[in-house]
Design a protein around this nucleic acid. Structure first.
Lengths: 264, 264
DNA sequence: CTTCTTTAGTATATCTGTGATACTTTCTCT
DNA sequence: AGAGAAAGTATCACAGATATACTAAAGAAG
């Protein structure tokens, strides 16, 4: 997978106790030991920043090794000196773009978790591509750990056990990711092509309604016939709808958490 | 995007009222009108079945147009007669592989939703690649609609409004998908390379523990130091742990739903 | 200062995949 | 029979990931 010359693989040089995988070392920006040879013009931070900028502009699909390199004035292959693979680059981007969580220490765990969820949503909403980075492994970058730490801090006053704490944070995080992914997809579709896209969308919806046979799918047919899809798309301000929809699921989760907190 | 000859685009032939996008027509297996010209040896079902088989064996990444075609004894390009794009093929695969939901009509919504979630988990667990199909748009295939119908049927005896019903099903579905994605990733990693992978995994975990400075991340450090990660990996049967873990989040959601049901 | 070593960046090439275009084949209908 | 339509095929252009081997630039050792 990696050339004979690839970055930071000095595994043999350390005892098994000290060994830290290269990917982790880069994620945590551990200083590269040597000061020999030609000094580097590139580094992980530069590359990740350039990649994030492209993702912000063109989406995750716009991030390719050659494009990132070109935006920095280097050749594609140069990136591989600093980053193990494209997948690793995505992981690095995700951690960097997540940023550090805001300060939200409260005595009230419910308020705290709500703030945490809204903060997470804000971050993801600003960079919807974050929700599409294929998750490879548990959170392991400094920023993602920091978000987890913030969540655990909120729950630290409860008597929940670790499994519950982790489970709750994972659940909320997953909810936020899913919600943003779905909503941003809609919003992007709408923005994509002034009117043609909206037309296509409406056509699609209308066609779907026609395909859902009330005999076979009675409840779904009633759902489609309900006001839910008729009123939403136009009149109310978008943010209001979105907040209401987001809160619906979130508060439901928080109600569930409340049951556990009381029980413990 | 599509050639001048591409499949089923006879938009002009129908009034705007009857128009159904080609992708939807294929998803719902609407019969192709004409009986002229050379009869087709291939069809959507054959292609999708072949693609699913490959995904089952090699994962989603193993599904490429040429490989699917070759497994059927045709050239890559032939598939484009029956399927608009690779993305569309993925959508078709996802719907087909979801299958129809089991019968789970109960008077008890809680039991019903639990069964629904477990059934969904079983399906996803059997084909983990399902959880990695990039979701393009709301559920719109017949099988996905059928699952939604099953969920709505369970909730039909409650007085919840449509927004709540949809929100609850989306939440549970999202939870299942996330859970399976995470767990199957772990399991695949473990299976990948007898021991080397497990070693790498342990190294990774150990390294991470070392990186998490208790000063900066006190709660997380305590979490890592807790028994949670020490006991899990080996002694208890996997399925037991998995069920307990899955149920933790699920029951939490159901507790939240209970609050809403009572309130309505 | 020169030469050695080490590391950074580059050039080149392979492999794989998507999908466009235009061609050939094989049907049905008249 | 033969016209016309649709299915499948042959080529092709293009793009991207990444291995391999090379060139260049810097400090260290003499």
């Amino acid at each position: 997978m990696m050339g004979p010359d690839s970055p930071g693989v000095n595994k043999g040089a350390m005892t098994s106790e000290d060994y830290i995988p290269a990917a982790l070392r880069r994620l945590w920006r551990m200083p590269e030991s040597s000061r020999l040879g030609r000094p580097a013009a590139l580094d992980v931070d530069l590359i990740v920043a350039a990649a994030v900028e492209i993702a912000d502009r063109d989406g995750l699909g716009g991030v390719t090794i050659p494009k990132v390199a070109k935006s920095l004035g280097f050749t594609g292959m140069s990136l591989y000196r600093h980053v193990g693979s494209k997948d690793e680059l995505l992981t690095l981007m995700a951690d960097a773009a997540s940023g550090t969580p805001p300060d939200l220490d409260t005595d009230d765990w419910r308020e705290g978790l709500r703030d945490w969820a809204f903060a997470l949503r804000a971050v993801s909403w600003r960079r919807p591509w974050l929700t599409r980075v294929p998750a490879s492994g548990p959170p392991s970058g400094p920023n993602q750990i920091a978000w987890m730490e913030a969540g655990l801090a909120i729950l630290s006053r409860t008597r929940l056990d670790w499994a519950h704490k982790v489970g709750i944070l994972t659940l909320i995080n997953g909810y936020v990711v899913q919600w943003v992914r779905q909503y941003s997809e809609l919003a992007e579709g709408r923005a994509a092509e002034g009117r043609g896209q909206a037309d296509a969308e409406r056509d699609y919806g209308r066609a779907l309604v026609r395909l859902v046979d009330p005999g076979r799918f009675p409840e779904t047919a009633r759902l489609f016939a309900s006001a839910l899809f008729e009123t939403l798309p136009s009149d109310t301000p978008d943010a209001t709808i979105a907040d209401a929809d987001f809160s619906l699921g979130l508060e439901l989760i928080l109600d569930g958490v409340a049951v556990r907190v009381e029980r413990s």
